[in-house]
Design a protein around this nucleic acid. Structure first.
Lengths: 230, 230, 230, 230
DNA sequence: AATGAATGAGACTTCATTCAT
DNA sequence: GATGAATGAAGTCTCATTCAT
C-alpha cells in the first residue's frame, strides 16, 4: 500500500510525460523514439500506448498539460490588469507584459520543467508536422483573440492588420529569446549563459520598442487614402 | 548529351537538391525520407548516396548552396554602405537593412526557390539536430562577426552584450516573419496572404523600433556602476 | 439484480460468448482480438481471461455451447427415424435428412444466433489452427460414427470407403451452402439473397443425387476383382 | 556470375512466393508472420516489403501467380470441348470435367506446388478477410461467367438459379475433396491417405449425380406455375 | 554515371496475459 | 465477481545505406 510497494513509482503517466517533454526538446519529435521515452521514464515500452494510445496523442498531451495552465495564467494576468483599469483601455505595455511576462515566468521555472517546456514550445511554433500545428492553433485560439481585442482597443489608431503582424514579430522574438542560448551561440560562440531573470526586462523593452515604432510610410499613406475615401 | 542518352535530364544533382529543399521545408529533416526525395526528383534511390554520400551530407549541401550566396550578398551590401560612408560609422538602420534586406529579397524570390529556402532556414535556426546547428554556426561565423562589429561601431554607447541580444531578437522576428503565413494563421485563421513585398517595410520598422528602444533601467544602472568602477 | 447493482447486465459470460461468436465469423479467430470481443460485449478486457482462462478456451466454449446442442439434435433425429423403422435399415434419404436437416434448421435460426454460428462452423472445418481441428474432431467423433454406421447398413453394396468420401463431399456442399451468399456472390455478383427456407430442398436433392450416383467404373471393377478373390 | 556467386540463389521473389504459399496453407494468412516467411525462404525480412510492398500485396501475388494459369487452363479445356462439339451444346459432364478436372490436375501436381496451392485455395473461398474475397471475385469473374453460360445452354430446362446453386454446391464438394485428408480425418481418424489420382473419378461421379438430380418438387411446381402464366 | 536488389537496424503498434486491488 | 494498470513478446513496415553490375 505504501509507495514503496507500488510497482511503478508514484505515477507512470506523469513519468512518461516528463521524459517525453525533455526528450522532445532535446531531439525533436521525430528523432525521439518511444524506446527513448520509456527508457528514460523507466517504464515498459507498451505503457505509452496503454496510457495515451499513440505517439501523436502523447505529443498532444505533453502540450495540453502545460498550455492549459499557461493560457489560463495569461488570461488571468490580462483580466487582473483590466480590473485595475476599471473599464479604460489598457496601456500596450501592460498587455504585452501580461502575455509575455507569463511566458518568461514559466521559462524561468527550472524546477518543475517549465523552462524545458517553453523551449520546446518556442521550437514547435515552426514545427512542420501538420497535426501539431493544428493542435496548437486550437489551444491558442481563445487567448489570442482576447489579447488581440485588448490591443485593438489600446491602439485604436493603428490598423488591425499592422497590430497582428507586430504581435507575430513579437512572438518570434520571444521564441528565440527562450530557445535562447542554443541559437545565440549559433551567432556568438563565446556567449555566456547568464542569469535568466535578466531576460525579462531586456526582451520587454525590445518588444515595446518594436510595437510602438512609427508605421512604415507606405502604411501611413494607404491609411490616409482610405480615410479620404471614407 | 541528348535526352536519349542522359536518362535523368540535365542535372541529377540539382534535381535532388531542389526536391530535398522543398521536402525539408514541408516535412522537416527527419520526416523526409530518401525515398520521398528521390521519388520527387524522379531519380534512383541510390543516387543520393552516390552524389552526396549520405543524407546528412545532402542536408549540408542544401544549405551551403544557398547560404554561400546569401552571406556573400549580405557582406556585399554591408561593404557597399561602408564604401559610401567613407570611413564614418554607419547608421544602424543601414546595417539592419543590409542584413535583413538581403534575407527578405531572397524570401521574395519564388521563382528560383529562394522563398522555399528562407522558410526552411527560419525553421532550422531552432532545429534540434546537433550537426545541423554546428554546420549553420560555421557558415554564419564570418558574416555575423562583421555585422556585429559594424553595430558596435554604430552604437558605441550600448553595451555589446545588449546589442548581441537585440540582434538575436531581430533574427527571431525575421524568422517568424518569413516562416510567415503558416504561423500567423496559427493565431489568426482568417489572415489573408497578401503581397509579400509589403513585408519589408513592416518588418524593418519593427526591427529598428526594437533596436533603438530605451535600455531597461537595470542595464542602465549596471552600466553606470561599471563606468564608475572604471 | 437491479441494473444498478449488476454492472454488466444479466450475464457477462453469455455476452462475451455472443460477441466472440459474431466476431469470429466476421473476421476469423486470429484477426479477432480480445479487445474487439470485450469492446463489443461492453466488458472489461480482463473478463475473458477471468471467465474462460484464455482465448483458446473461449474459442472452444463458443463451439461447445452450440455443438453439444447440434449433435444432440442430430442423434435425436436419427434415433427417431430408427424407432419408426422398427429395426429395418433406414432409407439413405432419411439419414441424410436427419444429419443435414438439423444443420439447416439451426442455420435458419437468425434470432438466437444459430445462423451466425453455422456460418462460422462451415468456415471452421477448413480452419488451419491445429487445436481447433483437434477439438472439432473430438466433438464430432460420436455422432459421425453413428451416422456412418447407419449409412453402412443402408447401403450394404457400396464400399464403406466410398460412403465415407461421399459423406465428406456432402459436408463440403453443405458448408458452402451455409457459408452461403458470401461465397456465391463471389461467383455471381448479382445473386439475390432469397428465402433461406428454400435452401433445404435444394441442397437435399443435390446431396441425394450425389450420394446415389453410380459408382465410377474403376471402383466397380476393383470391387469385382475383390469379390472374385473372395 | 555463376549461380554460386549470386547472393540470394536463383530468384528471391520466387523463393518468397513459394514459402508464403506453403505457410499460408499450413497456418492461414493471419497466423503466418513475415518472419516465418522470410525465415523459410532464407531471405532478409525486409525483402518481402521490397519486392511486394506489403503482406497483403504478397498474398495477392501468391494467388495471382497460380490463378492466372489455372483459369487459363480451365478456359482452354472448355474451348477445346466447344471446338469438338462444333456449335452444339456441350454435355454437362464435359463442362463439369473441364472445370473441375483442371482443378484436380493441379491438385495432383505435388512437384511444382500445385497441390499445396489448391488446398490453400479451397480454404480461401471461405476466408473471412474482406480484401482476399474481393480479389478472388475479380480473378474468377470471367471464367465463371463463361462456364455458367455453357451450363445454361447445356441444361435449357433447368432454371438458371438452380444451376447457379448447384455449381456452388459442387465448388464446396470439390474444395473439401481437395482440402482433403485433413478434414476427412476430422470425421474418421483412421482414414488412409491413398492414391490421389483416384479422387478424380470419385468426385466426378458425385458431382454429376448431384447436378443431374431431380429438381425438388417445389421448384418443379413453381416452374409449372411460371410456364402456365407465360 | 547510375541502378536494381538487398540488408540490418529500428520505427510504432498490438497482442494475450497477469496481478494487485 | 470484476477491473485498471502494466508487461514481454511479437507484429508489420520503413529507414538509410551498401554493393555488384
Amino acid at each position: 500500500m505504501s509507495e514503496a510497494t507500488a510497482k511503478q513509482g508514484p505515477d507512470t503517466r506523469a513519468r512518461i510525460l516528463n521524459a517525453a517533454e525533455s526528450l522532445f526538446m532535446t531531439h525533436g519529435f521525430e528523432a525521439t523514439s518511444m524506446r527513448m521515452i520509456t527508457g528514460q521514464a523507466e517504464v515498459n515500452l507498451a505503457a505509452v500506448n496503454y496510457h495515451f494510445g499513440s505517439k501523436d496523442a502523447l505529443i498532444q498531451e505533453v502540450f495540453r498539460r502545460r498550455l492549459t495552465e499557461l493560457n489560463r495564467d495569461r488570461l488571468g494576468a490580462l483580466e487582473a490588469e483590466e480590473a485595475l483599469a476599471n473599464g479604460a483601455p489598457l496601456k500596450p505595455s501592460k498587455i504585452v507584459a501580461a502575455f509575455f511576462g507569463v511566458s518568461l515566468k514559466m521559462a524561468a521555472d527550472t524546477e518543475h520543467g517549465g523552462a524545458t517546456f517553453m523551449r520546446l514550445l518556442g521550437r514547435t511554433y515552426t514545427e512542420p508536422n501538420e497535426f501539431v500545428r493544428q493542435f496548437l492553433a486550437e489551444e491558442y485560439a481563445e487567448v489570442v483573440q482576447r489579447f488581440m481585442s485588448a490591443l485593438y482597443r489600446a491602439l485604436p489608431d493603428v490598423p488591425r492588420e499592422e497590430i497582428l503582424w507586430r504581435f507575430h514579430f513579437m512572438m518570434g522574438a520571444m521564441s528565440y529569446a527562450i530557445a535562447g542560448t542554443d541559437a545565440l551561440q549559433l551567432f556568438a560562440g563565446d556567449f555566456d549563459d547568464e542569469d535568466p531573470t535578466r531576460l525579462m526586462p531586456r526582451l520587454m523593452s525590445f518588444l515595446l520598442g518594436g510595437l510602438r515604432a512609427p508605421l512604415p510610410e507606405e502604411v501611413i499613406e494607404s491609411r490616409a487614402i482610405r480615410r479620404d475615401a471614407a
